[in-house]
């Protein structure tokens, strides 16, 4: 007597073989407040619908000095403030502890994993590529451990070609691990790397800057605030990109950063 579909699904569920690349645990209810990790930036959380979604891969991307690291530290500070444990995979070892302390991060709750980076690889051009792959493995280990509130993969200064050389299945596999969990997974980079279906991409840039256009010095200066003799902060424009089933939703957000000396 052939097995009914229900019997087969029950058998697979018993043997824990009910999950494949094309199936997933049910995602968290987006209407649930606990389904998002607030970043602590009011304007940003309002645009994000409460915060970065849990159980999804999200991204914060943008050029250099666009506020990516500031947003990431703010998210981590909010998470540690809620009592969550946070892991930061610092692929290129550029994390500044003083900035983290100024942002209000509870450093005892932060697991910082520092990648091995060679400043001048010279002929050994694959050295930093191997460092990036090692960081991905560390990232995978942390996600497998589970129950971290936020896990950040920081490859903001990694060369674009090094990111592209990573196998495309890398992000699928990471997405698979984090789905259905309470972990907010954040990728920080210069360009979009990967985003799960219910995740979001936050594109940042200094106010006034326009990508791929020749702009004058005055336009670039608007987003960067200097006082009489002190750097005061950045004014950031952000665009939230979220993929839905039938529509592509985008929204913009603006906020300012304050230099630690002025805070």
């Amino acid at each position: 007597m052939p097995l009914a579909r229900v019997d087969l699904e029950s058998l697979l569920r018993t043997r824990r073989l009910d999950r494949t690349l094309t199936t997933a645990l049910p995602p968290l209810d987006p209407r649930d407040d606990a389904a998002c990790a607030p970043s602590g930036v009011f304007s940003l959380d309002a645009r994000l619908g409460g915060g970065f979604p849990r159980g999804q891969l999200s991204e914060v991307v943008g050029p250099r000095s666009s506020g990516r690291t500031s947003v990431m530290l703010q998210l981590v500070a909010a998470a540690t403030g809620r009592g969550e444990l946070v892991a930061l995979v610092d692929a290129l070892d550029m994390f500044d502890v003083e900035s983290a302390a100024a942002a209000g991060i509870d450093l005892d709750r932060l697991l910082w994993i520092r990648g091995h980076v060679v400043s001048n690889p010279g002929m050994c051009r694959d050295t930093n590529q191997r460092a990036l792959e090692q960081a991905i493995r560390a990232f995978t280990l942390v996600l497998h451990a589970g129950n971290f509130g936020v896990v950040v993969f920081d490859a903001a200064e990694a060369p674009a070609d090094a990111i592209r050389r990573l196998p495309f299945t890398t992000w699928l596999r990471l997405q698979r691990i984090v789905e259905g969990s309470q972990t907010t997974c954040l990728l920080v980079g210069a360009e979009p790397m990967a985003r799960s279906s219910a995740g979001l991409t936050l594109r940042l840039r200094p106010e006034g800057s326009r990508a791929s256009e020749r702009v004058g010095i005055e336009d670039l200066g608007r987003g960067i605030r200097f006082g009489k003799c002190l750097f005061e902060g950045l004014t950031i424009d952000g665009r939230v990109v979220r993929a839905r089933v039938r529509e592509r939703e985008e929204a913009t957000v603006a906020f300012s950063t304050v230099a630690a000396d002025c805070a």
């Binding site: 500044d96 900035s99 942002a103 304050v258």
Partner: peptide, 28 residues
């Protein structure tokens, strides 16, 4: 804090920066 926006308003608008949280400029 439930900061979900009411309705599916996707129009392009800009919020004024607020003092609810100070985002500290970070260094790398």
């Amino acid at each position: 804090r439930s900061l979900k926006s009411e309705g599916e308003d996707t129009s392009d608008f800009r919020l004024q920066t607020s003092d609810f949280s100070r985002v500290v400029s970070a260094l790398r």
